[in-house]
Nucleic acid binder design. Structure first.
Lengths: 329, 329
DNA sequence: CTTGGGACTGCAAAGGGTTGCAGCGACACT
DNA sequence: AGTGTCGCTGCAACCCTTTGCAGTCCCAAG
C-alpha cells in the first residue's frame, strides 16, 4: 500500500516476532509454531511482502535463475526449446534469462561470463565455440550443453547421426545415387555429426555424396546455395536444417525446378513451418521441446547425479512428406 | 583460478586499496586516480573478478534486469520482438527474463508478481488481463505495455486500425462486398482495434462484414474455423493474424477451395512464414522488432520522460501478395 | 526434584557491494 | 603563514535475508 515494498523487518515488527522467525516462515515453515506462522503469513499478506530474491541470493549463493543462450531466437528451431525450458524452469521456481548470440562465438563467451554471477547455471544451446573454451567456462558456472557432446559435461543431444542415416537410406531407396549435403555452420557439432553419418551411409549404400558448405543455417543461405547444389549434379539433397531446405525450395521454385520430380530435398528439425509449405518438406524430426526440458532437469539435479548421467540422447525420426520422390533418371 | 569467485575484498587486498576504491573503479571511474585505477583493473583482471550483480542490486535497488512476458514464445509473431528487445537491452547492459503465459491471463498476473522484485521493469506483450489488473500491477513494478493502449501507462502499439482499414479497402477495391473477420482471442486490445476499424471501413464502403470469434490466435484455430467462414458466404476474409490465416489456407486447400480464385484471405503481422507458403499471404505488416526496441527504450528512460511520451504508435503497411484477388461473382 | 530433550524463538554474523562523509596532501592564492 | 579548493581515498553504515548457535519454556522420564 505504501508504495515502498515491505521488507522482512516490516513484517517482523508488525507481527511482533524477530526477523529470523519471519524468514523461517517462508524458507523452513516446519520450524515455526503453526500459530506464529499463520500470524506472520497474514501480516505478510496484508503488507504485500515478497522475499527479495537478490538478498536471498546473496546469502544462499543460489539465485534461482537459469541462463539460456541460443544462436538466434528468431530461428524457428529455438522457440519451442525456449518455451519448454522456460516452462520446466518455472515449474521448479526458477526464472529464465534468454540471450541471443547472433551466431557469434565470441558473443557466446561474453554472454556466459556476463550471466555467470547471476544464475545457478547456463544452458548453452548449439554452441559454436571451441571445446577448450567450454572447458574454461564450465569452471565459472555450471553448464549444460545442448546439441553438442562435450567430454564429462552434462549434455543433451539429438541423435541426428541416426536421422541423417535414415534420410540417406530413404533417398537411396528411392533410387538416388548422386547426393549432396548442404552443410551448416562452422563449429556446429550437429553439422559434423550429420556429415560424418551421411558420408558413411552414402558410402555404405554405394552412392556418392558431395558436401557443400559451411553455410549459415538460414533460409537465405539455403536459397543462395541453390546453384551450387545443382552444379553438383545431385538428384537429391540433404540440408543441415529445415530452414536451409526451405530456402533451397524457394530458390528451386523460382528457377522452375520442380520438387520432387527433378530434385528431392530433405531437411532436419521438423520445424512447424515444414508441413505448411508446398511441397511439404520431408525431414528428420528432432524433439526440441524434450531437449529443453531435459536440459533444465540436468542442470537442476544435484552435482553428484549430474555427473552420472552426463549425456542424454534424444531419438529422431524421419518424416516422409512430399519433397522426396524417385530418381528421375 | 581458485574456483571460488573473487570478491571486491580480494581485489582490494591484492591491490592495496580500500574496497570502496575498487567499487568506484567500476561504478564511477572518474573519481579514482588513473594510476590507481589501472592497477585495480589489472589485479581485478588477473583475479577474474566480476562485480556481483545481486549484491549491487541489493544496495542500489536496481537489478539491471528486465522482464518480458509474452503469451506464447512459440508463436512466430514473438521471436523477432524478443530478439530485438534482448539485443536492445543488452546493449544498455541489461539482461532479459523471458516468460510465457500460455495465453492465460491469470498466469500473466502471477508472472508479473514473481518477477517484480527481480527486475527494474516488465514489458507486458499483448496482455490479455483486464485494465484494472494492469493498474494494480503497475504499482508494484514499472510496466511498459506492448500491443495495448492503457491510459497513462507507457505503451507501444501498432497502428493495426489503419492496417485493417487498408486491408478492407483493398478487398473492396477488388470487388468484394461480403466480407468476414476471423476474430482473435478474448481480451486482446489488438483484436478490438481490428474489429472496430474493419467494421467501420466495411460500413463506409457499403460492404457487409461478418465477425467470427473469439478464437485462439493459432493455426489450428484458423483451420477449425474454415467451415464457419465459408458458411458466412463471404468472398474475402481478414484474419486476426497470419497464423490463423495460414491455418485457414491449409484447411481451404484440404477442401479443394482455391485461393484467391474462390476466396481471398488477408492476414495481419507479416511473420516470415507468410511469404514462404503458397499462395503467398497478403497481409498487414507490423514492425515487431521496432516494437521490442521501443518498449525497452521506454522502460529505460527516466520516469519523468517516460510520462511525457506515454504512447508510441508504430506504422503498419499492407503487403499485397498472392492470397487476394478479384471477387469471383 | 533433577535431568534430558524437544519445540520454538531470538541474536548476530555473514554475504558482496555502494555511497555519504570525512580526512589528507598538494597546490594556488592572498 | 593562513586559507580555500581540488583530487583522491578510507571509513563505516546500509541494503535484505539466511542460518548456526544459544537461550527459554515445557513436559516426560527417572
Amino acid at each position: 500500500m505504501t508504495g515502498v515494498p515491505a521488507t522482512i523487518r516490516d513484517v517482523a515488527r508488525a507481527s511482533g516476532v524477530h526477523v529470523s522467525t519471519v524468514s523461517r516462515t517462508f524458507s523452513a515453515p516446519h520450524l515455526v509454531n503453526p500459530d506464529t506462522r499463520s500470524r506472520v503469513l497474514s501480516t505478510a499478506e496484508s503488507l504485500g511482502y515478497r522475499p527479495n530474491r537478490a538478498a536471498r541470493a546473496l546469502i544462499t549463493g543460489r539465485t534461482h535463475n537459469i541462463g539460456l543462450i541460443v544462436a538466434d531466437i528468431a530461428n524457428p528451431f529455438f522457440p519451442p526449446l525456449i518455451k519448454a525450458a522456460e516452462s520446466q524452469a518455472r515449474q521448479r521456481d526458477y526464472h529464465l534469462f534468454v540471450a541471443d548470440t547472433n551466431e557469434d562465438p565470441v558473443m557466446e563467451e561474453q554472454l556466459v561470463q556476463a550471466l555467470a554471477k547471476q544464475v545457478d547455471g547456463v544452458l548453452l544451446c548449439s554452441p559454436r565455440m571451441s571445446n577448450d573454451l567450454i572447458e574454461k567456462l564450465r569452471r565459472e558456472v555450471p553448464l549444460v550443453v545442448v546439441n553438442r557432446a562435450v567430454d564429462g559435461l552434462p549434455a543433451v543431444v539429438m541423435d541426428v547421426a541416426n536421422g541423417a542415416r535414415a534420410a540417406i537410406e530413404h533417398l537411396v531407396g528411392l533410387g538416388h545415387r548422386d547426393l549432396a549435403l548442404l552443410g551448416g555452420p562452422r563449429g556446429s557439432w550437429t553439422n559434423r555429426e550429420i556429415r560424418r553419418s551421411a558420408t558413411a551411409a552414402a558410402k555404405a549404400a554405394g552412392a556418392s555424396l558431395t558436401v557443400l558448405g559451411p553455410h549459415q543455417p538460414t533460409e537465405a543461405a539455403g536459397a543462395a546455395a541453390c546453384d551450387a547444389v545443382r552444379a553438383t549434379g545431385a538428384t537429391a539433397v540433404l540440408a543441415y536444417n529445415d530452414l536451409m531446405a526451405i530456402g533451397l525450395l524457394q530458390a528451386l521454385h523460382d528457377r522452375g525446378v520442380s520438387v520432387p520430380a527433378e530434385l528431392s530435398v530433405v531437411g532436419i528439425d521438423d520445424i512447424s513451418l515444414s508441413r505448411l509449405i508446398r511441397p511439404k518438406l520431408t525431414t528428420v524430426s528432432t524433439p526440441t521441446a524434450a531437449a529443453g526440458r531435459a536440459a533444465v532437469d540436468m542442470l537442476l539435479q544435484h552435482d553428484d547425479e549430474r555427473r552420472t548421467n552426463a549425456l542424454v540422447t534424444l531419438q529422431t525420426e524421419l518424416i516422409v512428406r512430399e519433397s522426396t520422390g524417385p530418381n528421375p533418371h
